[in-house]
């Protein structure tokens, strides 16, 4: 049985007639919206701001205008502690486009120490960010899982209202 589909090597493609190349230019300006605008301004001031759902009481971090669980508008703002626990971590050796990174990047999901949370809930206020002061070995051996970490900020004059105003989360 012949299977449809003709595999071509990159070199063959280069020689082939009728190949079209195109470089897309698609620039965007993404609106941060109501909640994230406040969050980003808070970062600039060195604060991690979350919202509390007015209906179920859960803390929404990153903050959003509505609670996706109970579908009611999110209520009051609150400033969250800048400490938390590493839930999971990984070590990346490749870039966004799959090039080699010169220095591996260690990233994690951090469960923040939010008021009213025990720390073992399946849903939690969390942040996705880099870890610093942590070695590849710390991650691969599993030592970093559960580690206590806190936000390390960029100097105030370098902050731009971006998630990267937090330089990373470091052990303490």
């Amino acid at each position: 049985m012949e299977i449809p589909g003709k595999y071509v090597r990159e070199e063959e493609l280069r020689k082939m007639k009728g190949v079209i190349e195109y470089v897309p230019k698609a620039k965007y300006s993404y609106s941060a919206g109501q909640a994230l605008s406040v969050f980003l301004r808070g970062l600039k001031e060195g604060k991690i701001l979350g919202k509390r759902c007015s209906s179920c009481g859960r803390i929404l971090l990153p903050p959003r205008e509505f609670c996706e669980s109970c579908f009611s508008p999110a209520g009051e703002w609150l400033e969250l502690p800048q400490t938390g626990r590493v839930e999971t971590a990984s070590v990346s050796y490749i870039s966004a486009k799959r090039g080699k990174l010169e220095r591996p990047e260690i990233v994690a999901i951090i469960r923040l120490d939010a008021p009213g949370y025990r720390g073992d809930e399946p849903e939690f206020p969390g942040i996705f960010h880099r870890l610093c002061g942590v070695s590849e070995e710390d991650v691969m051996s599993g030592r970093v899982f559960g580690a206590r970490v806190r936000a390390r900020w960029r100097p105030a004059e370098q902050r731009a209202g971006s998630i990267t105003d937090i330089e990373c989360f470091e052990r303490w």
Binding site: Y28, P62, T88, S90, E105, V107, I163
Partner: peptide
């Protein structure tokens, strides 16, 4: 684009984080 992309993530990051967990 605002909360995650500035960290320069590669698709595999999210799988690695889940797999490690």
């Amino acid at each position: 684009p605002i909360l995650e992309r500035p960290l320069g993530p590669n698709l595999i990051w999210i799988f690695a984080l889940e797999m490690a967990w």
